[in-house]
Simulated assay, not measured.
Amino acid sequence: MKKIEHICFIVPNYPTKNDPVYTFVRELICSIADSGIKCTVIAPQSITNFIIKRKRKRPYFWEDYNENNYKIDIYQPIHAPFLNFKLKGSNLAGMITQFTVVRTFNKINQSPDTLYAHFWHSGVVAGHIGNNYNLPVFIASGESKIWVEKLYSKKKILRSLESVRGVISVSRKNMLESTSLGLASRDKIKVIPNSVNNKVFYKMNKREARKKLGFAEEDFIVAFTGSFNYRKGVLRLEEALKKNPGVKSLFIGSGELVPQCENILFQGKLPHNQVVTYLNAADIFVLPTLAEGCCNAIIEAMACGLPIISSNLSFNDDILDDQNSIRVDSKNIDELAKSIQYLKDNKDIRDRMAASSLVKAKELDIQNRSRKIVDFLRENL
Rank of each mutant, 00 (worst) to 15 (best):
K3I: 09
C8Q: 07
F9N: 10
I10D: 06
Y14Q: 11
P15R: 01
K17N: 10
N18W: 07
N18C: 04
P20V: 02
V21E: 14
Y22A: 14
V25K: 04
C30R: 09
S31A: 15
S31L: 08
S31Q: 10
I37P: 12
C39A: 08
V41R: 03
V41D: 08
P44E: 05
T48Q: 12
F50C: 02
F61R: 13
W62L: 09
D64H: 11
E67K: 12
K71Q: 09
I72R: 01
D73A: 14
Q76K: 07
H79W: 15
F82L: 13
S90Q: 08
S90A: 03
L92E: 04
M95G: 00
F99K: 15
K107P: 03
S111E: 12
H118R: 13
F119V: 14
H121Q: 12
H128K: 14
N134W: 00
V137L: 06
S141P: 01
I146M: 03
W147G: 13
E149Q: 14
Y152R: 01
K154M: 09
K154Y: 09
L158P: 02
L161T: 01
E162M: 08
V167I: 15
V167A: 01
I168S: 04
V170P: 06
N174C: 11
L183G: 00
R186L: 14
I192K: 08
P193T: 00
N197P: 06
V200R: 14
M204Q: 12
R207L: 10
R207P: 04
K211R: 13
D219L: 10
F220M: 06
K232D: 11
G233D: 08
V234H: 04
R236G: 06
K242L: 11
G246A: 00
K248S: 10
L250E: 09
G255K: 07
V258M: 11
P259D: 06
Q260N: 13
I264G: 01
Q267D: 01
L270D: 02
P271I: 01
N273P: 00
Y278S: 03
A282D: 04
D283P: 10
I284K: 07
T289V: 10
L290S: 10
A291D: 13
A291V: 02
A291G: 11
G293V: 05
C294Q: 09
C294K: 03
A297N: 13
E300I: 09
L306F: 00
P307R: 03
I308F: 07
S311Q: 09
L313E: 13
L313Y: 08
S314L: 11
D318L: 09
I319T: 11
I319E: 06
N332H: 06
N332V: 05
E335T: 01
A337W: 04
I340K: 04
A355R: 14
S357I: 08
L358K: 11
K360Q: 07
K362S: 13
E363C: 10
D365K: 02
Q367M: 09
Q367I: 08
R371S: 15
K372E: 15
